[in-house]
Design a protein around this nucleic acid. Structure first.
Lengths: 220, 220
DNA sequence: CGAAAAACTGTACCGGTGGTAGGGTAATGT
DNA sequence: ACATTACCCTACCACCGGTACAGTTTTTCG
């Protein structure tokens, strides 16, 4: 772990060492490329070209392409965690009821992905799923940890909801927690396949309808 | 279109020409490899090796890797259509009510994917989504057609349900139809990421719960 | 300021892969 | 039997990931 995290004066770009900035530039360029055409189709040559460094410079930062993949995934997961934290924390600020908090969070998330101009760029976790054998065991484990993190996150929220609202259908809470990630991942695939960014947002809102139906009493 | 479809005596392997059989063998081998490690990571060399032909033999059947991808996708979509037809036709045989038919179909589909030993092998449509730029426009369009086909299929079923059952929440039927594919695609990603085949089946059953809640009156 | 460490550059090379070119041959269908 | 189909063989090319290693600039810090 030679990453500089706590540095006096904050973590701004200017405060980071030059190497750290270059490394970050490589990762940024790579992420764009990978989400557009997959990891296998993204060559080191084109990365170094766009980053305006040489091949040697690249291999100074990353031992091989596998290490690049790992760093990219770690970065992606971290950014993702921060985003999810923000959205669902905001839900907590806007309502006291746990069900309302969750519904607000889901809606905000849907609006967030709808506002992205080119649609959601895609999920590296899913992208890596479809290229398994290209990577080593460590990357597979990282991916798994990310998915389990999602489950845990939504499980905590759902547990609080279940305390107050008995579900109208028997459901396993872990499975329901997984459904959030399922709809996001599936929605991204569908959005990409049809070239319709709003589709992901629609699907998120449908999931919201499900949660509502599941936990609120219906007029008979 | 030089494919032999209608041939006297049926479409058995033995009735097909030798070339057709080799072509099929290449596609079968390729499909296994692609679903395991992605298209980019599957080399022509290894395909010809396992198919026990030479590189020249391969290029006799397919002009380039792109044509292989296209043929593979077409084959995959066709097989998929047949499977979905079977499952939801069986639902129609077992019940008269359109809602019951759909619920039976969903459950049968869930059981079907659960019984697969290694779990669902993955969906080529999704796999191609994450490798867009590797392929040409025609493949992109094919993929899109497949997804629209799913939407149409489930829309027809859902329209009949809506005729009899007013939904408990306002939903767009096309979006709801898309949700079937969304949960399948997302469920596959989740299953692959966690290495838990049953997860896809669970998610399908959750979707079934949603449909049930949406179209049946709840005791207030 | 100056030395050490960090962050690169340049060149040359290797094996594997997608793909091309073209000539030769065995199997197959009618 | 004969043409077509379905291959095989060899040689070649460009690109890509990766290695090796020596040399140079840039930054950091005492």
């Amino acid at each position: 772990m030679n990453q500089i995290i706590d540095r006096p004066g904050g973590n701004t770009d200017a405060a980071k060492g030059k190497g750290e900035r270059t490394r970050e530039r490589i990762l940024e360029i790579t992420e764009q490329a990978v989400l557009q055409k997959g990891f296998g189709a993204t060559s080191i040559e084109e990365i170094v070209c766009e980053a305006e460094i040489t091949k040697s410079g690249f291999f100074y930062h990353f031992r091989d392409k596998n290490e690049l993949a790992r760093a990219l995934l770690i970065r992606h997961i971290e950014k993702d965690e921060i985003l999810l934290d923000q959205v669902f924390e905001r839900g907590k600020e806007l309502a006291d009821d746990p069900l309302q908090q969750f519904l607000i969070g889901l809606k905000m998330f849907a609006e967030l992905v709808e506002d992205l101009p080119q649609g959601h760029p895609g999920c590296l976790v899913a992208a890596y799923c479809y290229q398994e054998r290209l990577f080593d065991r460590e990357i597979y484990d990282l991916n798994q940890q990310a998915v389990l993190g999602w489950r845990k996150r939504f499980r905590v929220i759902l547990d609080k909801i279940v305390e107050q609202y008995p579900p109208n259908e028997p459901v396993d809470i872990d499975e329901l927690a997984d459904m959030v990630a399922t709809v996001i991942e599936g929605g991204i695939v569908m959005s990409k396949a049809l070239g319709r960014p709003y589709l992901l947002a629609n699907q998120m809102m449908l999931l919201r309808s499900f949660v509502k139906l599941l936990f609120t009493k219906q007029a008979g």
